[in-house]
């Protein structure tokens, strides 16, 4: 499904982020439309994960403005917990809750935040597990699953909150190679359903296939952005060319 350019889901203006004296994001401005799949690539240390983590304020923003779904999350007045309910996040290291079984992992947030009744949450959790192909793992604990299974559960957990936006922070980087495919397949399905997605990844093949837009970051700036054809196949900037030569 193509992006709907009439509706802006994420608007970032002059975003700046410092860790002490280290300036990780220097001046980032971009927009993400509803239903758009944006893939962020770049060398390690380029600030791409930090950028993603700023979008749901897991990192405090030093300067600049971020508007998510018409709510300015960089303003102090906004209840960030409410905004986060609408933004699913998938982490490199899965971060499933080790003290609960899979179904409880999925049901915790919807039930605790009063999104729906326990019965509805259970039904949705089961549906989401089926969607990621793990209906039989309800009662398992995270430690009993493989990496690929854990990541699919993590995606299902985020989807249980019925978010409008999904953020993926290197979702396949910690996986054994043979498990990357199953996670990417779930993500492709999501993209096809029209989910707005921002994905930090090193999977160039996936970027080429699924992304509506690719952003190349380096040194805290967006160096180049455009369609996968433009950025991945015909890059203009020297740094993009250099990076792609190294990874492809």
């Amino acid at each position: 499904m193509a992006a709907n350019k009439d509706i802006t889901m994420i608007n970032v203006e002059h975003l700046k982020k410092c860790f002490g004296s280290l300036e990780v994001l220097k001046d980032i401005s971009t927009e993400v439309y509803k239903g758009e799949v944006v893939v962020v690539i770049g060398p390690s240390g380029s600030g791409k994960s930090t950028f993603l983590r700023c979008l749901n304020k897991l990192e405090t923003v030093t300067d600049g403005k971020i508007v998510i779904d018409e709510k300015e999350i960089t303003s102090k007045k906004v209840d960030i917990n409410k905004v986060r309910e609408n933004i699913g996040m998938v982490f490199q290291h899965f971060n499933l809750f080790n003290n609960m079984n899979i179904i409880d992992n999925l049901m915790l947030a919807p039930v605790m935040l009063g999104k729906c009744s326990k019965e509805e949450a259970l039904k949705r959790a089961k549906d989401m597990l089926k969607k990621v192909g793990l209906a039989d793992k309800e009662k398992s604990y995270p430690s009993q699953l493989s990496g690929g299974q854990k990541q699919r559960v993590a995606i299902a957990r985020a989807l249980c909150m019925n978010p409008d936006i999904m953020l993926f922070d290197e979702p396949t980087s910690a996986l054994d190679p043979e498990m990357v495919g199953e996670v990417l397949a779930v993500m492709k399905e999501l993209a096809a359903e029209g989910m707005t997605m921002v994905i930090v990844t090193h999977e160039m093949g996936f970027a080429r296939e699924v992304a509506d837009r690719v952003i190349f970051m380096d040194g805290g700036y967006i160096i180049e952005e455009g369609t996968p054809q433009e950025v991945l196949l015909n890059p203009k900037e020297a740094r993009t060319i250099d990076f792609l030569n190294k990874v492809l």
Partner: peptide, 27 residues
């Protein structure tokens, strides 16, 4: 406890104390 546990709970919309009570403290 891995800080990722707190981050994951917060990213779902749980408050600090909810995340602490349900996810971090039990572990």
């Amino acid at each position: 406890v891995d800080p990722g546990q707190m981050e994951a709970a917060r990213s779902l919309g749980l408050s600090y104390s909810q995340a602490m009570r349900k996810v971090v403290l039990p572990q």
